[in-house]
Design a protein around this nucleic acid. Structure first.
Ligand SMILES: [Mn+2]
Ligand SMILES: [Mn+2]
Ligand SMILES: [Mn+2]
Ligand SMILES: [Mn+2]
Lengths: 228, 228
DNA sequence: TTAATTTGTTAGTCATAACTAACTTTTTTA
DNA sequence: TAAAAAAGTTAGTTATGACTAACAAATTAA
């Protein structure tokens, strides 16, 4: 008996894989995404990703040649964007209505993004009056999957003397987000790069009369818009 | 290697089984709940329930003897009540804030009840100012799992001449709920039993100057509080 | 009280989604 | 350009939670 494929009802795992591929593709549009890179990102074995990729190819969400790099079909992209929309809308709801802090929302949103109900998410969007950005500064796709991608670069890519504005932060680490709040950085803070130390790539920054030294790893997770 | 048991993190399925056993136990406290009855209720095979019951016994949520009836431990009951709390709070949220009608909420709540976050549900409760009843008239357990069970009987158990108040409806069927709304019945409607027809147990009822005939099946899903 | 029926159990299978270990292909580097 | 390293694939195993078919125990009816 030939394997029946559920073309429409994606599992939580299938959805997570599509979202992961999408995020790897847009995060660095130049570099191609391979199987092992995806495995790393999802913290599973390359054998697991290889297997899932096969299934997603058979269902028409992913394209790739044997031993080649991965890409998403339009259907694959559409699923990924809808997940990102749900994730960011839930994060916004948790922060703005349920007293969650920005470091508490991601894990719960990872669960909520898989709830299947078109009406639920569109009504939640309306209830909040169609917010444009999530608590971490990321743009929220609208009901048609459209969203403007604001130009952003990492703080770590700037040089001495540059001035920038904080536009978004990586929402994946609780420790990182707490750290950002603690030193007093908030979305749209204006940051000046005082010094980039050659020895360990640590960066001395100034914002709101505060001077702080942050590591390269920290600066990799801070997204900014260069001003000067 | 001996099988490792996840004692704390219950799967969606394990949670659904515990909730089902709880609901069968309280719906008819007199009759014992058996394996096949549970299978019927959950629409799976008796082999499947038998298997799951074994696991839930090993984990300390269910007690039963071989070939005997099922019961929940305190831990089992606690899990079930927390699920019911989540289910009813989400239904209330969907109806009162997201423009869902009472027939649309159950399926989405079945998904949302499995989201794991203590803070999420307690904050949702607070956000709605601690509602007492869900859209179908059912009591919502508080954060400690306490809730008063209002005395309710089915409309079908009444006799000619009786007068009652609609206190709750079964929330499982979209068709049934739409039907209830269409004929104009709402929570706390006062209903008088005009006639119970011997032939097919259909019941002639009067409420708000409306006279309707409803079937036995319909009346089985309407819960009332006898007034006269 | 025996036979029929209902209820409960077991064994074996399948799909999903993870894993490790071994292997192959591609890419890099010496 | 040949060896080494990296990347990708395959095979075989495990756990969960369904299923059917066959069987055993308990209950009900004759
Ligand atoms: Mn996810
Ligand atoms: Mn975010
Ligand atoms: Mn459920
Ligand atoms: Mn309900």
């Amino acid at each position: 008996m030939t394997n029946k494929l559920n073309l429409n009802n994606l599992t939580k795992s299938e959805e997570d894989y599509l979202k992961a591929i999408f995020q790897l593709l847009i995060e660095d549009a130049s570099v191609k995404v391979g199987n092992n890179q995806l495995a790393d990102y999802l913290k599973v074995s390359p054998a697991s990703t290889n297997n899932m990729i096969k299934k997603l190819k058979a269902k028409g969400y992913v394209v790739s040649e044997k031993y080649g790099k991965l890409d998403l079909t339009e259907r694959g992209k559409s699923v990924a964007v809808r997940l990102i929309r749900k994730h960011r809308l839930w994060e916004t709801f948790l922060c703005n209505y349920l007293n969650f802090t920005w470091d508490e929302v991601h894990d719960v949103a990872e669960q909520l993004e898989h709830i299947k109900s078109r009406k639920l998410i569109d009504e939640l969007d309306r209830f909040m009056d169609f917010p444009k950005k999530d608590p971490h500064g990321e743009m929220i796709p609208n009901a048609n999957g459209e969203y403007s991608i604001i130009p952003k670069i990492t703080l770590s890519s700037l040089s001495e003397g540059d001035v920038c504005q904080l536009v978004a932060v990586n929402d994946g680490s609780v420790h990182f987000l707490k750290y950002v709040s603690e030193i007093g950085l908030v979305l749209s803070s204006e940051i000046k790069i005082l010094e980039v130390r050659e020895f360990d790539k640590s960066i001395r920054i100034k914002f709101d009369n505060t001077i702080e030294t942050v590591t390269r790893k920290f600066a990799d997770n801070v997204f900014v818009n260069k001003v000067v």
